[in-house]
Simulated scan of single mutants.
Amino acid sequence: MKYMLLIYSDENAWTESEQKHCYKESIELTQKLNANGQYLGSSPLQPVSTATSVRVRDGKRLVTDGPFAETREQLGGYFLVDAANLDDAIAIAGRIPAARKGTVEIRPILELKGLLPEQ
Rank of each mutant, 00 (worst) to 15 (best):
S9M: 02
V54L: 15
I27F: 09
S53D: 09
D10K: 12
Q31I: 13
V56F: 02
S42L: 06
Y23P: 06
A35G: 01
P44K: 00
Q38R: 12
V56C: 00
L45S: 04
N12P: 07
T52G: 10
Y23W: 12
N36K: 10
V48S: 13
T15M: 00
E11S: 09
S49N: 12
A13S: 15
R55Y: 08
S42N: 07
E16I: 03
E28Y: 07
S26Y: 02
Y39H: 12
S17T: 12
H21T: 14
N34W: 03
T30P: 03
V56T: 00
S17N: 10
H21L: 15
R57C: 14
D58F: 05
S9R: 00
K32F: 04
S17L: 11
E18V: 00
Y23C: 07
Y39E: 11
V54D: 10
S43A: 14
P47D: 05
L29I: 14
W14K: 00
N12G: 15
G37A: 03
V54P: 04
Q19R: 14
K24S: 07
L33Q: 01
S43K: 06
D58Q: 00
Q46L: 00
Q19G: 11
Y8F: 14
L29N: 01
L45Q: 08
T30C: 13
Q38N: 01
Y39D: 11
T52A: 04
N12L: 12
I27D: 14
W14R: 08
K20L: 15
T15G: 02
Q31M: 09
N12F: 03
G37P: 05
Q31E: 14
T15C: 09
R57S: 10
G41M: 11
T30D: 08
E28S: 08
S26A: 09
E25A: 14
S26D: 07
S49P: 04
E25Y: 05
D10Q: 10
V48N: 10
N34A: 13
D58A: 11
E18H: 02
T50H: 07
S26L: 00
S9P: 03
D10F: 13
Y8S: 01
R57V: 14
S53C: 13
Y23E: 15
N34R: 04
A51M: 08
V56R: 04
G41C: 06
K32E: 15
G41T: 03
S9T: 02
E16T: 13
S53V: 08
E28Q: 10
E25T: 06
A35M: 11
Y23M: 14
Y23D: 14
T50K: 03
T50C: 03
S42G: 08
K24Y: 08
P47A: 09
K20A: 14
N12S: 13
